Lab assay of single mutants.
Amino acid sequence: HNLTITQGKLFFHYNPKLCLSEIHKMEEVSGTKGRQERNDIALKTNGDQASCENELLKFSYIRTSFDKILLRWEPYWPPDFRDLLGFMLFYKEAPYQNVTEFDGQDACGSNSWTVVDIDPPLRSNDPKSQNHPGWLMRGLKPWTQYAIFVKTLVTFSDERRTYGAKSDIIYVQTDATNPSVPLDPISVSNSSSQIILKWKPPSDPNGNITHYLVFWERQAEDSELFELDYCLKGLKLPSRTWSPPFESEDSQKHNQSEYEDSAGECCSCPKTDSQILKELEESSFRKTFEDYLHNVVFVPRKTSSGTGAEDPRPSRKRRSLGDVGNVTVAVPTVAAFPNTSSTSVPTSPEEHRPFEKVVNKESLVISGLRHFTGYRIELQACNQDTPEERCSVAAYVSARTMPEAKADDIVGPVTHEIFENNVVHLMWQEPKEPNGLIVLYEVSYRRYGDEELHLCVSRKHFALERGCRLRGLSPGNYSVRIRATSLAGNGSWTEPTYFYVTDYLDVPSNIA
C-alpha cells in the first residue's frame, strides 16, 4: 500500500525493539523526510534493546553428524571492536523451508527459537588472519532439518551509529543413524509349514526405512522333555500350542467401542483428552525405555581390526524358502538304536541362519518350516543398504507352526516275539517326523474274553527296548493296539495285532 503524509511529521519514542533503520525507511515511504526535528525521533529510546544489523554474515563451514552440527561463519568486528559482546545463534526444527525470524513471537518477546549466546573469538592483530567464530550444536535429532541463523550482539553506541551483522536463515539436516526397533511384532501360524509375521514401523526411523531383515531359527525343545518319565503317576503330560491366527481386521481397528449394538453396526467412541494424553505418555515412556535398553543392555560386537582377528559373527547367506525346513542338525536320541526319531534339535552355532529381506511392506510369510516346531524370529529395521547396512537392534518374537495331521501315527506293522515265561516283546517304529517329539506310547492289549488293559511306555523305555515287553501273560489269544502321544496330543491307534500265548508248562520236552 502507498502511504503519503502531505502535512505533519513523524514522532517515535520509547520503541526499544524498533531499529532506527526501520524508522528511516518509514520517513522515505511516507514522504516526511526532512520535516522531523532532532528530538522527534529519539536516538536513545528507539532500538536500544534490539540488534540492528546492516551487514550480512556468511557461514564459512558446515559439518553434520547424526546428532551434531558444527558451524563456522566469517569474522565480524565493528569499528570499535570492544562493542562486540558476542553472537546469538538461533535454531529450531523446520520440516519445511518457510521459516521466518519472527515465527511464534508474542507480545512478551518470546519466540519459538532456541538461542545460544556465543563469546567472540580472540581478536588477531592481523586483519587478514582473524579467527572464524563458530559453535557445535549438540543433542539434535537424527535425520531432522533445522533452520539456523546467527547475528551479532553489540553494545549501545553513544554516537548512535547503527552497526551489526546478521546471516540469512539456512537449512541444515542432520545425518541418518540406526533406527529404533520395529514396533509390535506379531507372529502367527496359518499352516503346519508357515508363519505369518506382521509389525509396525519404528517410532524413530532416523532416516528413510529402506528394508527390513527377518531372521528365523528353529528352537530346540526343553531338555526336561527328553529326561522326564511322563508315565509316572502324578506327572502331567506336557503340551505345546501353536500360535493362533490373526483376529479379523475389524476387531483390530483402534479407537473402536468394545460393545456392539445388537441391531447392527455401531460407531466408534472418540477417545477423551485424558485417554489420548495417557497414550502419549505411555508411548514416550516406551521410547525412553527402549533407548535405555539399547544403550545399557546391548553391547556392540567388536569388529575385526587390522591384526587379522576374525569377526566372530557368522556370515549372512541367503537361502531359498524351500530350504528352511531342514535348518537344524538332527541327532538321534540314543545312538545305539537307529530307529528312534531325530527330534532332539541342538543347533550348531556355526550354522548360517536363513533370512529374508523385506522391502516396502511390514509383513512376511515364512514358508518351508517344520510342522509343530518353535521358531525364534528376529526382526531388524534398516535405513541404508549400501555401502553397508545400517540397521536397528533386533526385536524378537516366537511362534510355533501348526501340527501336521497323521504325523504322530505309527507307520509300519507292530511285530512281536514270544519268549519263555510268557513274555512277549512288542516292537514298532517311532514316527519319523512327529509333531514336536514323542513323549510316550500307549499300549492297549486284551486277552479274548477279558477286559482291555493299558500300559504306558516312556520315551526312554522305548529307546532301550525298541518297544516294550509284556510279562506274566496268561495263555490265550491276544490283540494289541499302540498309539503315540506327542507334544500336540495323541496320534491314531494302530491296526490290531494278534498273537497267541501258550502255557509254557505244557511245552513238550526233548528229553527222552
Rank of each mutant, 00 (worst) to 15 (best):
T373D: 03
G234Q: 06
V397H: 09
E217R: 12
L505T: 15
E217Q: 15
Q219K: 05
S243P: 10
G325V: 08
N360T: 08
G368F: 07
N295F: 15
E221D: 04
V424K: 00
P238C: 02
T343M: 09
L277H: 11
A220M: 10
I438R: 00
E495H: 06
S315E: 10
L455E: 15
S251H: 14
L237D: 09
L228E: 15
V297I: 09
W216I: 09
N360M: 09
S203E: 09
K460L: 03
S509A: 06
T288I: 15
S284L: 07
S243I: 12
V345H: 08
Q252H: 09
E389Y: 15
L321Y: 06
V480T: 12
S268D: 07
S398A: 08
Y396E: 08
D450H: 14
V365Q: 13
T401N: 01
I482D: 01
A330S: 14
C456I: 15
V457Q: 04
H294S: 07
R390S: 11
E495K: 15
S243R: 11
N510I: 15
I209Y: 05
Y500T: 07
T303N: 14
H454V: 13
F499C: 11
R318D: 12
T343R: 09
P332N: 03
K278W: 10
P434F: 11
V457F: 15
S284K: 13
I482N: 01
R483L: 03
E217Y: 11
S367L: 10
T401A: 06
G207Q: 01
C267W: 02
N360R: 11
V414C: 02
E442Q: 03
R376K: 15
D323L: 04
Y448A: 05
S320C: 09
P238K: 11
H461N: 07
G412I: 08
V345W: 10
S305D: 15
L225C: 04
Y292Q: 09
S398P: 10
K271M: 12
N477H: 11
F246K: 09
K432C: 11
S203N: 13
H211D: 01
F215T: 12
L379Y: 02
K406W: 11
L232I: 12
S223W: 05
Y504L: 12
F462E: 02
H425E: 14
N477P: 05
W428V: 01
V411S: 08
T303D: 15
V414K: 01
R469E: 09
K233S: 08
E260P: 10
P332K: 04
L369Q: 15
S304A: 15
I366D: 00
S492K: 00
N435I: 00
S243C: 06
P300G: 10
Y259I: 03
L455H: 04
H416W: 06
Q275L: 07
T347N: 06
V334H: 15
K236Y: 10
L235P: 07
R471E: 04
S320N: 06
V334M: 12
N360L: 07
L237N: 15
V358S: 05
L364G: 08
T343G: 10
D506N: 01
S239F: 15
C266P: 04
I418H: 02
F337R: 12
R319G: 14
C456A: 02
N255F: 04
H371E: 11
P314V: 09
C456G: 01
V480F: 05
S283V: 10
Y230R: 07
E224G: 10
Y441M: 01
L437R: 10
R390M: 05
A336S: 10
T210H: 11
P387I: 07
R353S: 11
E351A: 11
F298W: 04
T502S: 13
A335Q: 13
I438P: 01
D385A: 15
S262L: 11
F215M: 06
S492H: 04
A336R: 13
K287Y: 13
N360V: 12
E465Q: 13
P475V: 08
D291Y: 13
S283G: 05
G322I: 05
V443W: 01
A395D: 13
T210K: 00
D311Y: 15
N208Q: 15
F215K: 15
F226K: 03
P245T: 06
T502M: 14
N206A: 04
K236S: 11
L473M: 09
E420Y: 15
E282A: 11
K287L: 04
D323R: 14
G467Y: 01
A407Q: 14
G322F: 02
S223V: 04
G306E: 04
E465V: 11
G374Q: 12
Q275Y: 07
G234P: 05
A395P: 03
P496C: 08
E433C: 03
S283N: 06
F462L: 05
S239M: 05
V214D: 00
T373G: 03
P508W: 03
L364M: 13
N421M: 12
Y230Q: 15
E404A: 02
K432F: 06
T494M: 14
L232N: 14
C456N: 01
R481F: 03
I418L: 06
C456T: 02
S251T: 10
P475H: 13
V501A: 04
T288E: 08
T340R: 10
F215Q: 07
W428Y: 01
R313E: 12
R400M: 02
A395F: 09
V297D: 08
G207L: 01
P244L: 08
D250K: 08
S284R: 09
S257G: 04
E249R: 07
L426D: 01
T241N: 09
V327M: 05
Q256F: 10
R400L: 04
E221R: 14
F462W: 13
R370A: 14
A335F: 14
S239V: 14
E362Y: 13
Y498Q: 05
I209K: 15
K278T: 05
Q219D: 07
I366T: 00
G489A: 11
A381D: 01
E362S: 09
R286L: 07
E388K: 13
N326L: 10
I410P: 06
T343N: 13
D204V: 14
E389V: 05
S458M: 14
E452M: 06
Q380A: 04
S363R: 09
V299W: 02
N435G: 01
E227Y: 10
L487C: 10
E433M: 05
E227N: 11
T340H: 03
T485A: 15
E247I: 02
Q256L: 08
C391T: 11
K406I: 11
S341Q: 08
G449H: 01
P245M: 07
D385S: 01
T347R: 02
T303R: 10
P413I: 00
F462M: 10
D311P: 08
S251R: 06
E417H: 04
F289N: 04
R301W: 07
E389P: 11
G374V: 08
P475Y: 07
G374L: 10
E389I: 15
V365E: 06
A381E: 01
V297H: 13
R286A: 08
E420R: 04
S305K: 14
V296A: 13
D408K: 01
I377E: 00
G476V: 00
T303Y: 08
V457R: 14
V424P: 03
Y396G: 07
G207C: 03
R353V: 15
V501C: 06
L440T: 02
F499G: 00
G322C: 11
F372L: 07
V480W: 06
C269W: 10
P475C: 07
R400Q: 06
I276M: 11
F215H: 05
P270A: 12
V397F: 10
